[in-house]
Simulated assay, not measured.
Amino acid sequence: MSTEKRKSSNSNKQEKVVYREFGGDNSAATERAVPDLPPSQQNLRVQSSRAGRKGKTVTVITGFQAKPETLTALLKQLKSQCGAGGTVKENEIEIQGDHKQKLLQVLTQIGYKVKISGG
């Protein structure tokens, strides 16, 4: 019983870590850096896709090199322009429906270099 008491009293104190493979305190240092390039330096691809979406058509915009906050602001603007829903997934923007031409015009006006990909 004396060892259990010793363990519980030691657990209340700060643990001494001898070795830690991926330190937990320096999370800012281990985060992956995402370059936030201006729109004129980004090459985007716009394509329609139905794969894995139960037959629903979704317009996917890929090629972003921006922070998630920038993508969510852009998503909000694109959704209002198209009158459709959408989301940000894995640094890509998905807009519900087939809006390739509309998104091409809107993104070009904002200053992005955009190409339509696929058929």
Results as ranks from 00 to 15, higher is better:
H99F: 08
V17N: 07
S9P: 01
E90L: 09
F64L: 00
A66W: 00
Q14T: 13
R53T: 11
I61Q: 01
V60H: 01
E94L: 15
P68G: 05
G111Q: 15
K100Q: 15
K102A: 10
Q65N: 06
T3G: 01
N26R: 14
S27V: 10
F22M: 09
G52D: 08
E31T: 12
Q77P: 00
E94P: 04
G119K: 15
H99N: 11
K67D: 00
I110N: 14
K67T: 03
A84G: 10
Q47V: 08
G24H: 06
S11I: 14
Q77S: 05
K7G: 03
G111H: 09
T57A: 11
Q41L: 04
N43D: 06
E94N: 14
M1I: 08
V106P: 03
V18Y: 11
G111K: 15
K7H: 10
G23P: 12
V106L: 10
G83M: 06
R53S: 04
A73W: 00
T72K: 01
Q81E: 12
Q65S: 10
P35A: 10
Y19A: 13
A29E: 06
Y19K: 12
E90F: 02
K56E: 09
Q14C: 06
L78H: 07
K100E: 15
F64I: 00
S27K: 14
T70S: 09
I61A: 00
T30P: 00
S11D: 14
Q14E: 13
S27Y: 10
L44N: 05
S48T: 11
I110A: 14
Y112W: 07
G86N: 13
Q42V: 10
L37D: 00
T72N: 03
L44C: 07
T30N: 03
N12F: 14
N43I: 03
Y112G: 03
V60A: 00
Q96L: 10
Q42N: 03
E21N: 12
K79N: 09
L75N: 02
S8W: 02
Y112S: 03
K7A: 09
Q47A: 11
A73L: 05
A28Q: 07
